[in-house]
Amino acid sequence: MKDLHNILTEITQLTNKIETNYPELYRSLDENPLTLPVSKSPHMDKKVMVEYLESLKQLLGHYIEEEKIKNQ
């Protein structure tokens, strides 16, 4: 299993990729319920960060699929 440093690095790289290649999606990241913590003061441990990374991957994957459908 990945250590927290590697997870944070992957989150940063994925976020940078979204910002660079999909700016319209990047603008909505701070408004997306998938990327917002549920509790007022969430405990940011390894499990939470892995879940966040997975939500970013899913969000990007869905966005890319929707764009493919739109452009057909």
Rank of each mutant, 00 (worst) to 15 (best):
K70Q: 09
V48T: 10
K70N: 08
L36E: 00
K40W: 12
M49K: 14
N21Y: 14
T12R: 14
K17Y: 14
L60S: 07
Q58T: 06
L56K: 08
I7N: 03
H62K: 13
S39E: 01
K2I: 15
V50Y: 05
G61W: 10
Y52I: 03
I69L: 14
N16L: 06
K46Y: 02
R27K: 10
D30R: 15
S39I: 05
I11W: 02
H5P: 07
R27M: 04
E67K: 15
E19W: 13
D30Y: 13
E19Q: 14
T15A: 01
H43V: 14
E67R: 15
L25R: 14
L53Q: 14
H5G: 09
L59G: 00
E67N: 11
L25H: 08
S41I: 12
K40Y: 12
E51V: 08
K46S: 07
D45C: 07
T12F: 08
H62C: 10
I64K: 15
L8K: 06
S41F: 09
L59I: 15
V50C: 04
L59Y: 01
Q13H: 06
E54I: 15
E51N: 14
Q58E: 05
M49I: 14
D45G: 07
V38N: 00
S55P: 05
E19I: 13
M1F: 13
Y22R: 14
Q58Y: 06
K68H: 08
K57Y: 10
S28W: 03
I64Q: 15
K47M: 01
S28I: 15
S55L: 09
L59F: 00
E66G: 13
M44E: 02
D3F: 03
H62W: 04
L36F: 00
V48M: 09
